[in-house]
Nucleic acid binder design. Structure first.
Lengths: 355, 355
DNA sequence: AAAATTAATTAAAACCTTTTAAAATAATTC
DNA sequence: GAATTATTTTAAAAGGTTTTAATTAATTTT
């Protein structure tokens, strides 16, 4: 097969610099088949306008020459790269990794690819991606970046969709635009569930760790419902990762009056908190219950295994991808698809008191 | 700014279906500036052939119209998409997530993007990606997939590079081709280090968990050096993830004669093993030492924190990306770059006996 | 002031496909 | 056998950029 290719090159292009491989084009096939370029294109695209025998002949030659259509040329004429952009803060974060995986899996099943656009929480990076998207390098994009700094881009993103590049938001809010569908989980309720559960266990003084208005509000509403009040010192409202969680754990361990339980914005933070508490000889859950949100795989393998609130991130990713591809293919969305919210679920494990 | 665009559309294209946004092109700018298309292109690319004032005028108009070059057209003529493919088994795996992150970070700094190609260990998926690469959708690719099944693609991948699509292997072997640089870590030595350390602690009966010829051999060579022999039942040679590690842990816990220490192919497996041991009331490290390889972030936050052998995955990713972009830009590689190997380092934490 | 040189601009080709409208060929009908 | 219809093939345009070679305009030299 490869010999043919080499021979072919020799025949048609004579002088060829060593190492300069020239890809086979429709034209080459046409010449070889003694037929026009248009016929070849039609034939390879299985048009029923072209004669059966010609089609076969052309396909044979294409095979023999190891032809593969030039994606760049095709993208130009089709106005589509069959590629979407996925904007997330970082891949090194089990939650977003799983989101990326599920999105990739779905779009791949529809013959699309995904460009990995991680911002590392830098707003300028997101900006650069938005500009890239405008250039038509993708057919659409999913934005899954949270954070206040990103809010300033909402206008630009609206512009993007008005320029006909569909966008779907995942767990990102701040925009209420008819052309931007939002897929999210009920994190308000998740935080509520977490706090509510801890209170039902008998805990009276709860702490919260992480930076998220929605989750903090859910947390507060549970306290409110049970007539508990929230001391300022029990709110560690800060941008945290696992290391940050560790710091919070250290701070808590150092207090004389410790909270009885802590609700963390996500599982990573929870693990950080627990690790610090254990290191400081504070027993989890005997002395302090710790609960996360997300239910990442590690939550089940941590020691103690982590009580958490499940967020169906894979389902969310798939749904977002479905909606995006629907929009890309020009379909209209049902009202439900424009704002799709997933329920969350409490998962009781070993990092909280047993009732 | 946006008003201008709309106005412009109205002027030049009169009838425009609602919602059908037409992107601004070089031609539009040329007309508006009363100058030829070529001049516009030259001007926007900052050619010194075009007059200072004209250049300024053109740039102003481009700005006003919110012009952004069409990436698809540019890709066609430049024969480059400024995009690379990254083939990994899965993103939901801290090791590959970190690899992806570092690769993305570097190529992004050079204005390249990365298409996420995760195969879920399916050989057909890798095949599909290889075909996509052939179509010119990427300028080059990094293959970081291990596994015997993938070996069958080596020929195809060689073909790929012979078609002038540069490829770099990361931690993947089986090919010795002058055009395929390999970046790897010394995992043979890593396994050796792990076993050697455990033996130095006084352990006599060691087990191994995971499927990797190279690592198992390193493990064996350490035993050999110390004159220890390896019982078959102590080798859990299987394709394992975290769950698989858990199963191994259960099996070990159920044995009457337990090994004194276990070397795991990677940290995920190690965590699975530990979690099972603890669940079965086998104390780690008091009764059994467990050691991993990789040094993922979680290793430091696990409880007990995980003794492991560090693999500088971020450095590896960066190096691989550097080499790939070098090849893409046509530079030749030094012999060292054609086979770059990173040293590994023992990281002692709490999952192994203290000396 | 004509010739030669330099600077600025442009026409046109190239990149490779898809797709439409027109042309050529084959098959059918009267 | 001419006219019509159906089938098959093709020429050509379109997509939007880059880039080279050629043209035009401006400047300098003789």
């Amino acid at each position: 097969m490869y010999e043919n290719l080499l021979l072919y090159k020799y025949v048609n292009l004579n002088v060829l610099k060593e190492g300069d491989y020239m890809a086979v084009t429709l034209n080459d096939i046409a010449r070889k088949a003694g037929v026009s370029l248009a016929t070849v294109s039609l034939a390879l695209n299985n048009s029923d306008k072209v004669n059966k025998d010609t089609k076969l002949k052309i396909k044979r030659i294409a095979d023999k020459l190891n032809y593969v259509p030039n994606a760049r040329a095709r993208a130009l004429v089709k106005k589509s790269t069959k590629t979407i952009g996925l904007v997330i803060p970082e891949v090194v974060n089990p939650f977003f990794a799983e989101l990326a995986q599920s999105i990739k899996d779905y779009v791949r099943s529809q013959d699309f690819n995904v460009i990995l656009c991680s911002t590392d929480y830098q707003s300028e990076e997101e900006l650069r991606y938005i500009n890239m998207f405008r250039s038509g390098q993708v057919d659409g994009a999913i934005f899954a970046c949270v954070g206040d700094m990103m809010a300033q881009h909402n206008e630009l993103i609206i512009k993007l969709v008005e320029e006909n590049i569909p966008v779907v938001y995942v767990d990102r809010d701040g925009v209420d635009h008819d052309l931007i569908p939002v897929v999210k989980s009920d994190v308000y309720h998740a935080a509520y569930q977490a706090a509510d559960y801890l209170i039902s266990l008998g805990h009276k003084e709860l702490a919260f760790a992480g930076q998220s208005v929605e989750r903090l509000n859910g947390f507060k509403s549970a306290l409110m419902k049970h007539g508990l009040d929230l001391k300022d010192k029990n709110v560690y409202y800060d941008y945290l990762k696992m290391e940050g969680g560790y710091t919070v754990g250290e701070k808590i361990a150092a207090r004389k009056n410790k909270p009885e339980a802590v609700v963390c914005l996500n599982d990573e933070i929870a693990i950080g908190v627990i690790q610090a508490l254990i290191a400081e000889k504070v027993k989890v859950p005997e002395e302090i219950s710790v609960i996360g949100i997300d239910n990442i795989k590690m939550a089940n393998f941590y020691n103690p295994s982590l009580t958490t609130v499940n967020i169906p991130v894979s389902q969310m990713g798939k749904k977002a991808a479905e909606i995006l591809l629907k929009r890309i293919s020009g379909q209209t969305l049902s009202p439900k698809e424009k704002f799709f919210i997933f329920p969350t679920e409490l998962v009781i494990r070993d990092s909280s008191w047993k009732a």
